[in-house]
Nucleic acid binder design. Structure first.
Lengths: 163, 163
DNA sequence: CTGGTAAAGTCAACAAGACTGACGTAAATT
DNA sequence: AATTTACGTCAGTCTTGTTGACTTTACCAG
């Protein structure tokens, strides 16, 4: 890591930015690898995982909210949601305040699958975190948040914080 | 699996791991957003971007090597590669050492598109890096690398390092 | 030099998961 | 009462991944 332009810009060379881009690509593959293997056994895909994850994180959420978080069309989400409801992993109840809305929650079976997927994914994260230490983890989270689009960051921050 | 086991493991609570998972999801959306917009104008997709990126990074690389990096089937890669060659963005020449191999390089037009995509993606990375500072960036890279599958880390490390 | 292996390309069929556009229903809002 | 919103659905398309089978060409080892 030598630098000819002064210590402040050390980390901003194009080459280093490209390595960051590649790291993101390879890491995301690893990030999804474990859940993907589990999902395959149930005949589900990543789209199901995402729905399950965010319903778990925001129990009682509406379809519209989920659409905003996931950034897909309602037709796309509906296909996934329908199979999850049919298979008894997600419950869709008419909204209490607003009867046009549907409040989505995981059933027991849904929670079981969520736990299985989450355990696997967290295990990899935990291992990575252990390997690199807490300061690295802090930096990791900071960069990721800075990379988000503003409206995605809004959704991210709206999710329940640790503690 | 809740962690109240002392200050060293504070960063390993399930809730914090989940926030990390979500950060990864939202950040990856941002990460691909800018290139996706550009690619759309050319009638290409993310698969084309990946091929272009890694051919640029390893000029003269073989199809097999690219298959290893991308982790897809040759039929899947071939479809993408074929259109790129037909469109005159990629050149495929018979290998010199081994004539069974094809050495892939970007044409001038290919390099132009690569630059356009890379500029956009680097701009976002650079902005994020600026925002959070060099120590955070270092942590970011460390965590990403620790999250990769071993064989992907092998490919990652085989890529030319920034000085 | 011959038989086996390897690299690449191709055809065909299929599936997940995204998209658009159009339409319907029920409930809330104006 | 009219309009908008939330949700659901039908139908069709596209990208990108998959399997499986087959060919051509080239390298390599016996």
């Amino acid at each position: 890591m030598d630098d000819r332009r002064g210590p402040h810009l050390l980390f901003l060379t194009d080459e280093q930015l490209k390595k960051g881009i590649e790291a993101m690509f390879f890491a995301y593959k690893g990030f999804t690898a474990d859940p993907d293997r589990i999902l395959e056994q149930y005949g589900y895909g990543r789209a199901h995982h995402r729905a399950i994850h965010f319903i778990h994180r925001s129990p009682g959420t509406t379809v519209n909210n989920l659409l905003g978080i996931l950034g897909v069309t309602k037709q796309s989400l509906n296909r996934v949601l329908r199979t999850l409801v049919e298979d008894g992993l997600v419950q869709s109840r008419v909204g209490t305040r607003d009867k046009r809305e549907r409040n989505l929650t995981l059933t027991e079976r849904g929670q079981a699958l969520e736990a299985e997927l989450s355990d696997a994914q967290r295990a990899r994260m935990r291992a990575a975190y252990r390997e690199v230490g807490p300061e690295a983890v802090d930096g990791f989270r900071k960069v990721l948040e800075a990379m988000m689009d503003p409206d995605m960051r809004r959704h991210f921050n709206a999710l329940k914080d640790p503690e």
